[in-house]
Computed example of a mutant assay.
Amino acid sequence: MNSNKINYADITISAVSPSQYPKEGLPEIVLAGRSNVGKSSFINTMVNRKNLARTSGQPGKTRTLNFFNIENELFFVDVPGYGYAKASNAEQEKWGRMMEDYFSSREELILGILLVDFRHEPSEHDILMYDFYKHFNVPVYVIATKSDKIKKSKHNKHESIIKKALDIDPEDKFFTFSSFTREGRGNVWDALSAHLLKDEKA
């Protein structure tokens, strides 16, 4: 996939149950992270769009699994942001069931992306999400957003803190990313393309 020239990217469906999942059979990459980590900005930067994924002033607004078709080659699946204080317990349980339905049954799922804020130590929710991926044997890319907010001289320190808190599997990849400077975009696309190729051959 030529990441510098993405001609097609569109939201296919916002699903709440397996019967609504896309039927194309394309590989799917899940994007998870807390409500204000910059998931929408990450998607928009990755596909060179300004507002494919809507950035909201209201954290926790995503209530569905949003399937974004990229070049008819793969889906980014944006799942509800977690750690949003105003979400009721009932809402959170509903999201949890929706996620479990997807993760336990979806053969197209080939990779999980966990977005964390590079400036902060991973939250309890971040750690739970990483463990959730591992529970379902999903390979993970940990992507630390807002890297432009941290001095380069401190990048190694922050990376170490995040990896230690998550107890990251040595096989899982770590990237720094900035939607402001676009740092990391090329590296992430290179890794995704290689992963897609490996999955095709498997």
Rank of each mutant, 00 (worst) to 15 (best):
L74N: 03
L111C: 07
P18W: 09
Y133Q: 05
L196W: 08
A165I: 11
A194M: 12
K86H: 12
A144Q: 06
L109S: 03
A191S: 09
I13P: 00
V188H: 02
D190V: 15
D101H: 08
A165H: 06
T176C: 10
E183I: 15
V116K: 00
L74T: 08
G33H: 03
I150C: 00
R63N: 03
D10Q: 13
L115M: 05
K157I: 14
T45C: 10
L109F: 03
T145P: 00
N137E: 10
M98C: 03
A144T: 07
L115F: 01
H125V: 14
D169L: 04
V188I: 12
G96F: 13
I161A: 00
V116H: 01
S104L: 05
A32Q: 04
M129E: 05
S40D: 06
I150M: 01
F103W: 04
D167V: 14
E171V: 13
A87Q: 15
V37Q: 00
S88V: 12
F42Q: 06
P122C: 06
S104C: 03
P22I: 12
L192P: 01
N7R: 13
H158K: 11
S178G: 08
N51L: 10
D148W: 10
P170G: 07
R106E: 00
P22V: 14
A32Y: 05
S193V: 15
Y130T: 09
M98G: 00
V142R: 04
S17C: 13
H125R: 15
T176W: 08
D190N: 14
D148P: 02
N89K: 14
E121H: 11
I162G: 00
N187G: 13
T176R: 10
Y21K: 07
E24S: 12
F132G: 09
N36S: 05
N72G: 09
E124D: 12
A53E: 01
L192E: 07
P27C: 02
I6V: 06
K61L: 10
D199F: 12
F174A: 07
D190E: 14
I29T: 08
R97T: 12
N66V: 07
K201F: 09
T45G: 06
E91M: 13
I6N: 02
K86R: 15
K152T: 14
D78H: 09
R106C: 01
I161Q: 00
H135T: 15
R49Y: 06
F136Y: 08
F118Y: 05
Y8A: 12
S123L: 11
K94F: 12
K164A: 10
F118L: 07
Y84L: 13
R119Q: 02
D10P: 11
S179P: 04
I162F: 05
E107S: 03
S153W: 12
Y21Q: 03
K5D: 09
G33S: 04
L115Y: 02
E183W: 13
L65K: 00
A202N: 13
V30F: 03
K146T: 08
I11S: 07
K50H: 07
F118H: 01
